[in-house]
């Protein structure tokens, strides 16, 4: 009987999926539920017994601090997503042509991908701080007279320092995913298009782009999802105010008064929901684009 039991398709499928799905249910869904329940006022560990209340969510969502934080978080996440996608695709397409020293180049193009974001942060500080190396070069060249004349890239509301770190990591990320897709596409289509008289731009737009689009969507989706919730980079390189949502969340998590922890939980719930909405909208948009293309072609 047992032999047959283990031959049963459903049993095989269930047993096969159980370890991974079960682990994630416990380690991933569990914590999210804990955060949600706490944000609704159930935190006996901190002597908060007010479940269910929307008080903490209301407190967070209706504050100016939250709204400003949401705007800058979206801004710091979207700009690098757009730029990384642009540069990463350009890099992958250029790289897919005949290039000398491909292995050498490819090694360095992937290097930022395999180091922690914190490494990027240290580099951006060393190079772009107002007393950093680039400012010193400009000073030595007589282009600036003091550190104050160098544009403020780090620790300012513009968030350029944060975005530079994201780009350092994410251009390679996009590059690698698009390269993988391109290597499956092969150069034939594009070459055929060029032979038939398409311009380089046309060949890219009508032949290459549709084929790499799924890869582009996947990579930009992951990049955005990461940027939106990143903590250490905006914490280290951002302005005191405005701060991003995750930084505000952890600030609240760290106040000595533990009865205020549910506020932090309301923040992370909001982060999750906003991120989810943006990603969902993006996927919908892509599906519609794909369908419309299917309709025309």
């Amino acid at each position: 009987m047992s032999r047959n039991f283990f031959r049963d398709r459903r049993v095989v499928i269930f047993l096969g999926l159980a370890p991974a799905v079960g682990t994630l249910l416990f380690l991933f869904v569990g914590p999210l539920l804990v955060a949600l329940v706490q944000s609704l006022g159930h935190a006996p560990i901190y002597r908060v017994h007010r479940f269910p209340t929307l008080e903490f969510h209301r407190q967070v969502l209706f504050s100016t601090r939250f709204r400003i934080a949401a705007v800058v978080t979206l801004y710091y996440a979207l700009v690098p997503t757009f730029l990384a996608t642009l540069l990463g695709v350009a890099l992958a397409v250029t790289f897919s042509r005949r290039v000398r020293g491909k292995r050498f180049l490819s090694f360095f193009f992937r290097l930022p991908l395999v180091v922690p974001y914190l490494v990027g942060a240290a580099m951006v500080v060393a190079l772009f701080a107002n007393g950093g190396l680039i400012a010193r070069l400009l000073y030595a060249a007589g282009l600036i007279e003091s550190t104050g004349q160098f544009p403020r890239i780090l620790f300012s509301a513009g968030g350029w320092g944060i975005m530079l770190v994201y780009l350092f990591k994410q251009v390679p990320f996009t590059f690698i995913i698009v390269t993988a897709v391109l290597s499956g596409v092969g150069p034939e289509y594009e070459e055929a298009a060029r032979t038939l008289g398409a311009s380089r731009m046309q060949a890219f737009r009508f032949v290459l782009l549709p084929r790499i689009m799924p890869g582009v969507v996947t990579s930009s989706l992951l990049v955005f999802a990461f940027n939106f919730q990143s903590y250490e980079i905006p914490y280290l390189l951002g302005a005191t105010f405005p701060a991003t949502l995750p930084v505000e969340a952890l600030r609240r998590f760290n106040v000595p008064d533990l009865t205020r922890r549910p506020e932090a939980m309301a923040y992370v719930v909001a982060i999750t929901v906003i991120s989810g909405i943006v990603l969902f909208a993006y996927l919908r948009l892509y599906r519609r684009w794909e369908r419309s293309r299917g309709g025309v072609g």
Partner: peptide, 20 residues
């Protein structure tokens, strides 16, 4: 403008020795 408030003593010190 956008005044800078270093987040830690170390961050201020690095601006001090960095000439800022």
């Amino acid at each position: 403008g956008s005044p800078v408030y270093p987040a830690t003593a170390g961050a201020l010190q690095s601006r001090f020795v960095g000439g800022e």
